[in-house]
Design a protein around this nucleic acid. Structure first.
Length: 950
RNA sequence: GCGAGGGUAGCCAAGCGGCCAACGGCGGCGGACUCAAGAUCCGCUCCCGUAGGGGUUCGUGGGUUCGAUUCCCUCCCCUCGCACCA
């Protein structure tokens, strides 16, 4: 019967579903034999593709492995629907967005007739949950306990999250404050990336405002800059003479800023009232005083000033800004014309750039050097931007501030910019505002600006909380280990995290239902929810109050009147928790995973902190990034239909380790299928063949010895989530051994049949986590029981045999050497003579082993023997070879070899070698007066016989 | 720019001080089997070589070592993350 994955897999799916095999409940097994694995719950704002398939299969492999090791294993799943992506998708669908519709109907093959179901957010989510994720997970054979699924939009889940946030608030880790957000001025509400029509990549910058004062009045001219350290290099200010500026009262002070800026400042939680508008031209010629240096400087007109960027009033630092350098040059050239605008031409001509720092490789005026180096002639030169960027970077990382900077003098800009900025802010000379670095338009057509909004933050920068989080990182098994540092770095740079949004699916903030808790904040401890999700349905949502969860998580003593039901559930939570391994992705380390550690560290005791996290890489398709919007995806459904679930699993887990990126290549998946089919055929031959008898020859012992190695290697790999190493060893590496074995011996022998059956049985158990359908089926046919019903293999001491492994290695070496000689000489020998090294050579090897691989000492030891001394150069050459031989091998190997009777090994292999080369084989001892027509015998070395072909 | 990971033969990819010209897979070449194709099996696949050998390689340039693909440094290139996007 040939390999038919479809039929076979359907049958096993049915068996698993009917038996409820993977529904896990607490039983007698104690904590050491309980394993809880999770994976981030899917976000069903679209379909499932092959990359998701790997994400969910990795924990499944581990879950299956632990079950075979005798554990009670829980592997649950839920559905994340929080926030706006699903709502956004529904809105785009309803508005007839062709791109969205195509992505659904093409990439995810949603039938036209089903589109109507997708018109509500939960309808949309439910569609993909049922038709894509659940269907795909079942097809893949994931061993999930389906009773525990939920969505993050469920009432009971909201009660749980509500408890979490009430608790955090009470502990002072949730705080209200202002925070910058992208804000649509038309709709008067915050917007997300999905809402943006133009300028999606825009970032908002925090500008420093240097508060220059009018020399003649008390008005503030806030000059916006991203380089506050250049404050001592300002030579003049620029305004756009054709623009409209405003004189406004900002937080009680009189400011001059562009008209646009007054609106921005207003959005950024400042008290702004515009007193009067002022033409830009009227500002030209006025003088302003630098708050740091106290110098008076002129305001010069310039058309390049963008009044829609920050305050619309800019300062000029010609020594360090190529832009400003060019602008000053040009201003000097048209100085005469400026007289008409009320600026004194002589003053302009007299402007000298003022350096603020020294930069290696540049003169006093780095901007001048940069302009000259890039050959820039005018402000319109496109090279100007690159020149500016280059200089800014160099000055930031290498520029040393001059003496005038006092406490900051001699420091590198990078190290002190923030300190310098806050120093002057404290003195009241500097202020700040946000602005976007490019124009951003909302889908509604409205202008998007940065607004400061009242919001609730999680205080991830709280010192005590961070300490606890670091503790959770320390006790974590971070896989791969290199990720640990990433967690630590994340804790170091995390600041406050705004955890609410104005709209979206999910849990409302309990004390202010205007806001919803955002997705990264409602997914930090939900693994705990799985432990009781299937039993929570018995409790009406309104009874799931704070006390209920306090009791559930903290016990009867935590509240005055503990709920009996909560106490019962507590037993199950205590049974499963903590999560042993969370299989997640690299890109979630800097947010979700670290958040999760924070929340566990705060809300639960150390024993409940996550034990391990493995971080997975991403998937490529034929060498390129997958993209559902471009239709560049493979759906698990289609792949399974074409190749079978075992092939899909095997390919995904064997082509790279989980944390490495993998590349789905149809060609290779196809050949993976063929390899499984071949394996199937061979297994069937063994199963249907005779049982054989345990009458073992050397070669059988060799294969069994190799098998024990495989068992050890696969077990170690499984423990470390190295799915590739595990399957490579259990499948390919062992197959290589079998290939040799088949060549080497008569497979019809009873001993060989027995060996083959033993190897197959063990191998099927090792492969069962990765290819459960096929492995269980074959194992059941072989033994009467599926592989998952019997224990994971352990190495069997009586089959460990390094000697037989080393002996077989010698046979392979000889085979290789003879083949090499045949190839080079292009002959077809009728007789092959092997000469085993003389005894004195073996003695010499022993001497080298004892004395150590050092030529001098070895020679002086050996030369004490008169017989050897007579051999002269032959000894010298031999020792050279032997020293190298010993250096390249460890002690154990040398000890094993020293026990071997080399001649007997070749004599036993003679019939095999004769078959391979179709030639007569004769084995001689070098010192046994052998037949030696071409005088070859002397070339023999220990474990490397001399060879003669005839 | 900052943080992390990585650059190995035609491609993918293992190795992480000597057993390495470098596992394995794919592709290519030759042979066996076959009417033929496919599948399967055997061998070859950096260069040279009529005796198991020699030469040049593991992003670049240095260094440590008796010895480096493996350790240290410089530089170049690629991927991911960098906050309100899940």
């Amino acid at each position: 019967m040939s390999y038919d994955p479809q039929e076979l897999e359907a049958e096993w799916r049915r068996r698993w579903a009917e038996s409820g095999r993977y529904e896990a409940d607490p039983d007698g097994r104690d904590a050491d034999d309980v394993t809880f694995v999770t994976v981030p719950y899917p976000y069903p704002n679209g379909g499932m593709h092959i990359g998701h398939a790997r994400t969910y299969t990795v924990p499944d492999v581990y879950a299956r492995y632990r079950r075979q090791q005798g554990d009670n294993v829980l592997f649950p799943i839920g559905w994340h629907v929080t926030g706006t992506p699903i709502i956004g998708a529904v809105e785009r669908l309803q508005s007839g967005d062709t791109h969205q519709i195509e992505s659904l109907t093409n990439a995810f093959v949603v039938p036209e007739s089903d589109l109507a179901d997708l018109e509500t957010p939960m309808g949309f989510a439910r569609y993909f949950i049922e038709n894509h994720y659940k269907a795909g997970m079942r097809q893949l054979g994931l061993s999930i306990d389906w009773r525990r699924e939920f969505t993050t939009n469920d009432d009971r889940y909201a009660a749980f999250i509500g408890w979490q946030y009430e608790t955090l608030k009470e502990r002072g880790l949730l705080e209200k404050g202002l925070h910058p957000v992208n804000y649509c001025t038309n709709e008067a509400q915050p917007v997300t990336t999905h809402d943006i029509y133009e300028g999606e990549d825009a970032e908002f910058q925090e500008y420093t405002l240097i508060k220059f004062n009018g020399a003649d009045d008390d008005v503030v001219y806030p000059m916006a800059t991203l380089r506050p350290e250049t404050v001592r290099g300002v030579t003049n200010a620029y305004v756009d003479p054709d623009a409209t500026y405003a004189r406004a009262t900002v937080d009680g002070e009189a400011w001059i800023v562009s008209e646009e800026a007054t609106e921005k400042l207003d959005l950024q939680a400042r008290e702004v009232s515009v007193e009067e508008t002022v033409a830009g031209a009227d500002l030209v010629g006025k003088r302003v005083r630098n708050p740091v240096t106290d110098e008076e400087l002129p305001i010069v007109p310039a058309e390049f000033v963008d009044t829609d960027s920050a305050t619309g009033v800019v300062m000029s630092v010609p020594a360090h800004s190529p832009d400003d350098w060019i602008a000053l040059e040009e201003a000097k050239e048209r100085a005469v014309d400026l007289a008409d605008d009320g600026v004194d031409p002589d003053e302009i001509r007299a402007i000298e750039p003022r350096p603020v720092l020294t930069l290696e490789g540049y003169g006093d005026y780095p901007a001048k050097d940069a302009v000259e180096e890039h050959g820039i002639e005018s402000a319109s030169d496109p090279a100007l931007e690159a020149a500016t960027q280059e200089l800014y970077n160099r000055e930031f990382h290498r520029g040393e501030l001059l003496e005038a900077y006092g406490e900051f003098a001699g420091e590198i800009v990078e190290d002190v910019r923030d300190d310098l900025d806050s120093h002057f802010r404290r003195r009241g000379d500097f202020d700040a505002m946000y602005d976007l670095d490019e124009s951003v338009i909302c889908r509604c057509g409205g202008d998007v600006e940065v607004a400061e909004q009242e919001t609730w933050f999680l205080r991830y920068d709280d010192e005590n909380w961070s300490e606890r989080a670091l503790g959770a990182i320390e006790s974590l098994d971070a896989i791969p280990e290199t990720t640990r540092e990433q967690y630590v770095n994340t804790v170091d740079w995390l600041e406050e995290w705004p955890c609410i949004r104005n709209y979206g699916l999910g849990t409302r903030l309990p004390w202010d239902d205007e806001f919803v808790i955002e997705p990264l904040s409602d997914s930090t401890i939900y693994m705990a929810y799985y432990t009781v999700a299937h039993r929570l349905g018995d409790v009406p949502p309104e009874e799931l109050d704070r006390d209920f969860f306090e009791t559930l998580f903290y016990g009867a003593d935590a509240v005055d009147d503990p709920d009996e039901r909560a106490l019962e559930l507590r037993e199950e939570w205590e049974y499963w928790y903590p999560v042993d391994y969370r299989c997640s992705a690299n890109d979630l380390i800097s947010n979700h995973l670290t958040f999760s550690l924070y929340h566990h560290a705060e809300l639960f005791d150390e024993e409940q902190w996550p034990r391990g996290i493995t971080s997975m890489g991403m998937g490529l398709l034929e060498g390129e990034m997958m993209s559902s919007s471009k239709g560049h995806v493979v759906l698990p459904d289609e792949a399974i239909e074409e190749y079978g679930a075992d092939t899909v699993r095997f390919f995904l887990l064997n082509s790279s380790e989980p944390w490495q990126d993998f590349d789905w290549r149809a060609d290779e998946v196809g050949s993976t299928h063929d390899q499984l089919a071949r394996f199937w055929d061979r297994a069937i031959d063994v199963i249907e063949g005779p049982d054989g008898k345990r009458e073992l020859e050397e070669i059988d012992r060799w294969l069994l010895a190799r098998l024990q190695e495989t068992v050890r290697e696969v077990t170690d790999a499984m423990d470390r989530f190295e799915t590739r190493t595990a399957s490579q060893n259990a499948f390919y590496r062992l197959e290589e051994r079998l290939k040799w074995y088949r060549r080497r011996t008569d497979l019809d022998r009873p001993g060989a049949r027995w060996t083959l059956r033993t190897v197959l049985e063990t191998r099927l158990r090792l492969l069962a986590p990765v290819i459960p359908f096929m492995a269980n089926e074959l194992h059941e046919r072989l033994t009467g029981e599926p592989a998952e019903a019997v224990p994971w293999p352990e190495p069997i001491p009586e089959f460990e045999d390094p000697t037989v492994v080393a002996e077989e290695g010698l046979v392979a070496d000889v085979l290789e050497d003879v083949r090499e000689i045949i190839a080079v000489t292009d002959t077809d020998p009728e007789a092959i003579r092997l000469y085993v090294a003389a005894d004195w050579k073996r003695d010499a090897l022993e001497t080298v082993t004892d004395v150590g691989p050092d030529r001098g000492p070895v020679m002086s030891e050996i030369m004490q023997d008169d017989d050897l001394r007579e051999k002269g150069d032959a000894v010298n050459d031999l020792v050279g070879d032997l020293v190298e031989f010993v250096r390249e091998r460890d002690e154990g190997t040398l000890a094993t070899l020293s026990e071997i009777d080399e001649r007997a090994v070749y004599e036993d292999a003679a019939s095999f070698l004769a078959r391979e080369f179709d030639a007569d084989i004769a084995v001689y001892a070098e010192d046994g007066e052998p037949v030696d027509p071409d005088d070859k015998a002397g070339q023999a070395r220990p474990f490397r016989p001399a060879i003669h072909l005839e």
